[in-house]
Nucleic acid binder design. Structure first.
Lengths: 377, 377
DNA sequence: GCGATGGATGCAACCGTGTGCCATTTTTTG
DNA sequence: CAAAAAATGGCACACGGTTGCATCCATCGC
């Protein structure tokens, strides 16, 4: 404790490294360990308790101990109590590897995201994290760094290391994902594939509402700033916009595609929107939309006075950018939770048929949308 | 492929669930599997290839196959080629559980964060994800949801399931963390504990620069909007501010503590700063600072005209809030990478002594700081 | 009092991989 | 050409937990 107070050298210049004062303590620890138990080949770690240790302590067989801990009804109540007592005393923690080896279940799932730094995944990750823990599963986070090949390779190697996977925004073709299922149960988010359970957010429905919102404000020409070509949700959103515009007598223009993961993206989209003679623009996602806002601000374009901007997803930051962004809010945490729930259901001995869950999206109106300017069409 | 085109029903009302059209295909698949191999008790999954399968195919012993794949020098080159060929043909993937069981190494590490939705962790997670993959390790993401008890319990259960852990912002007391090390190697981020390897970002140094920046702009009274009491980095930053202010002849005021994970936090901090008769405020982190900006904007206070605001960390959003935030940028991805590197070094047979790496932080000047107003002092 | 019944427990065989030790083969050396 | 040395491959066991089957004992019914 008093050692802690000593470590206050905040005025030290930022050197690359600084040695801690721990050389002696670690040496002492190592010596202590070595003296304790040396199970095999001189390992330096203390040996954790096994079932056999509990068995020895209670005078039971390991099989009985195992049943006492995992099949409570299968042993005498008194025996069970004895075993649990001993387990507590020895600080017993079951070895997951051993359990996995003969049961085939690892007790963990993988969550694959295309890019961890994309704020879109924050909410999803929180949802998967919560539901995983609720289900007693560990969550492997795999960042694909926007690489489809990496995804393929990783899925192959993960196949037998996890019980299943949640794929948030996979890049693999439908066939590859559908083929994956027998080897490893999979749930996909934001995509619909026949035969694969999925969680889809009804952002297209929200796009319809956004178009209504814009048309009611007098907009008659609405652009769509597209994301990466071929992405399922990207095409869905464009179609929803085109359809709603047609229904309401407005003109729909498709711009792009624009990259949506790096900041420069929004600039190109903003310029394209200004060229397209529209009064409003719905962007594929909030990252793109916020990038547009920045560019428009740089160019001195008034939002929403001259151009209204709508985003998708309601990511972190959409409420404090300038101006606060009107967006189609996606229930990301719910989607993550539901994805894991469906995966867990899929892992049960009698898996339900693959289904596609649809979560509603809400149009959140902030300050980046307003009445259409008079002159434009 | 043509099936994919059919799945375009974006105008469908957002129902809770919709059945996929996959019942027949999954049934066919299941039948095909059952016909293939039924290893034990009629499992429904296809049996993955094992070493024994390669051995049978090549006419070698499993031990030789094992060595061919893991100890290239130990077998004849021709034998090794045969084995690798067979492994490819059978799509062999080593069973991690079995490997872990007898080697004691799981090939995975845990990364513990106190709250996944805190944008502070985004950069860190990307760093740990990259370095983990580079080291051939899987990364377990554990969200502690701001609960110290959960952390304690989880660390106990994880102890034998992972090779080590990176603790980003742990809540456990120093003693508990130091005691953890013999059972499970650990690297802590943003905290310095004797005997435990750590990666610390020199934000306090950056705070010093920020104070110089503010003083040079004429500020003489600077507030610190504190984060959660007792957090190591929080105390460090305050001390750095107080020390730098004393050195430069400015007055330092400590406000708070304020919660820094939820948005309402910033409001209280902003009001407190206005009451404190200061002209500038350095906040514990960017979440708090951005919350302050929002509140100040609501109250019609000009930033930086009436009050300058500085944040810490340079999280996602700090560059597009209004006004863009002057902040002390932390190299978060580097910190994550380095944390994993140090953990990996710790896992080697001859672990180096625990050391504390310090990464420099940079003051990034944007638009939330400016000259001090005339009247105040 | 004896056999049937069922609950409680132990035995032993797995799961798939890694590795120490030994047998065998091949190469080198005197 | 024989002996020594090196290279190569196989046997068997260990890792820790689960589970089918056998065993044992107590209780119950007749």
């Amino acid at each position: 404790m008093d050692e802690d107070a000593r470590a206050t050298d905040e005025d030290r210049p930022p050197t690359a490294e600084a040695d801690a004062t721990a050389t002696d303590t670690t040496a002492a620890e190592a010596a202590a360990e070595k003296a304790a138990t040396t199970p095999r080949g001189g390992e330096s770690r203390a040996r954790p308790a096994r079932l056999a240790d509990i068995a020895a302590r209670t005078g039971l067989a390991t099989s009985t101990v195992s049943r006492a801990l995992t099949r409570p009804g299968r042993v005498h109540a008194a025996t069970r109590a004895r075993v649990e007592q001993a387990a507590r005393e020895l600080d017993y923690v079951p070895n997951r590897a051993a359990r996995a080896l003969n049961s085939g279940r690892t007790g963990s799932i993988a969550v694959l995201v295309s890019d961890v730094t994309n704020p879109f995944y924050f909410g999803i990750l929180r949802g998967t994290a919560r539901q995983s823990r609720a289900a007693g599963l560990l969550q492997l986070l795999v960042d694909l760094e926007e690489s489809g090949e990496l995804e393929d390779a990783l899925l192959g190697r993960l196949r037998h290391s996890v019980d299943g996977a949640v794929l948030a925004a996979s890049r693999l073709p439908d066939r590859a994902l559908a083929a994956l299922d027998p080897a490893m149960p999979v749930v996909v988010l934001n995509r619909r594939i026949p035969g694969v359970p999925s969680v889809v957010i009804d952002t297209p429905g929200g796009v319809g509402h956004a178009v209504e919102h814009l048309v009611s404000l007098g907009h008659r020409s609405i652009a769509y700033a597209a994301g990466r070509q071929g992405v399922w949700s990207n095409e869905q959103r464009w179609r929803a916009l085109a359809r709603a515009a047609a229904r309401l007598g407005a003109r729909a223009v498709r711009l792009g595609p624009f990259p949506t993961t790096r900041w420069p993206a929004g600039a190109a989209a903003a310029d394209a929107a200004l060229n397209a003679r529209v009064t409003a623009c719905i962007a594929f996602n909030d990252v793109l939309a916020i990038g547009m806002l920045r560019r428009l601000s740089e160019r001195g374009v008034d939002v929403p006075g001259e151009l209204s901007v709508v985003g998708c997803d309601d990511i972190f930051g959409a409420d404090f950018c300038s101006p606060p962004l009107t967006t189609i809010a996606a229930p990301l945490e719910d989607a993550g939770r539901l994805g894991v729930s469906m995966l867990v259901a899929r892992l049960r001995p009698d898996p339900p048929a693959a289904r596609a869950a649809v979560l509603p999206a809400q149009l959140v109106i902030r300050s980046s949308t307003g009445p259409a300017p008079r002159a434009a069409g």
